[in-house]
Design a protein around this nucleic acid. Structure first.
Lengths: 161, 161
DNA sequence: ACATAATTGTACAACGATGAACAAAAAGCA
DNA sequence: TGCTTTTTGTTCATCGTTGTACAATTATGT
């Protein structure tokens, strides 16, 4: 009946809160997934940040650097540092927009598209393997929870600038 | 081995897979949470990596740098870079072990303990706020799923060295 | 006991991410 | 039109993270 009250005095440690412990697990899983993905992509000379870029160019051809940075939740300067590398490797193209001479429109080259497909294959396999034990319904519920968290954090972030 | 031939006809993209989409949501939520936490901790001059260290010293007094790095899933060199900073700020102490002269045993100073409690307060509030909408049971299920993922990734990582 | 291997922490160079300052171009407004 | 403000991308200095090589210490094996 009053098991909660008994433990109530000890509940002032963060790691005793269920939500806190849950989030720590989420963060650790993310960190490990990132590290594992980094190793599995190494032979393609692609790192997670590069893959994030490539996948978005695969999906959204002709996107601008600004839009890309926004999707990836990083600063514009980040794109200015990474994109020229991918361009020099012949994986992407940056063409100036005719109507707006400020923007650079991004697209994959054939080589970039091929490499992206190989890398996505690896990433998908890793994900399917790691959470293959979880039923689809559980994954959907997790996704729904995460979407709510994302919305809450984006909202408060949007109030800053 | 080649299940891919099945999907080849309909060109299934990764973002059409439920598990893939779920994991992307998890990663984005983590990224946003980290960024928000960074801003909320700024006035304490503490960043998420520092807080991770402080919390672990709070829980596990007398831990070694090696053990700490292992818990945080980072390299030893990382600790060698960060810990002297925290030591100079008077937040932690590093004392050599008498029996094993290689190891440095870490502990919080009173100032470090106070700062850690303030920072944990902020982090806990952010987490409770962000996933406050999710029922405790959902959080527990998410935690269970993440633990399984962590176990799977740690296992395959342990087979490497 | 002695040589070899494994461990613990450090130093250093390379890379990614960030924020501020900047130039060019476009948009808004009088 | 002419002026200011906003947007877009770049540059740069700074910081965190990583991997490698290294020194000191301990453990292991013969």
């Amino acid at each position: 009946m009053n098991k909660k009250q008994v433990t109530a005095e000890h509940r002032h440690f963060p790691w005793d809160h269920p939500r806190f412990r849950s989030w720590i697990a989420v963060a650790r899983a993310c960190q490990l997934m990132q590290q594992t993905l980094t190793r599995r992509l190494a032979h393609l000379d692609v790192k997670p940040p590069h893959l994030d870029i490539l996948i978005n160019l695969y999906r959204f051809d002709g996107i601008t650097q600004q839009e890309l940075a926004h999707k990836l939740l990083v600063g514009r300067s980040n794109m200015s540092m990474l994109l020229p590398q991918l361009e020099q490797r012949g994986l992407i193209e940056r063409r100036g927009d005719a109507r707006d001479k400020r923007v650079l429109r991004l697209s994959l080259t054939p080589a970039g598209r091929t490499l992206t497909e190989q890398a996505m294959e690896i990433q998908t396999a890793l994900i399917e393997n790691s959470l293959g034990g979880a039923p689809i319904e559980d994954c959907m519920k997790i996704a729904a929870s995460m979407e709510r968290i994302i919305a809450a954090l984006l909202k408060e972030e949007g109030e800053l600038p």
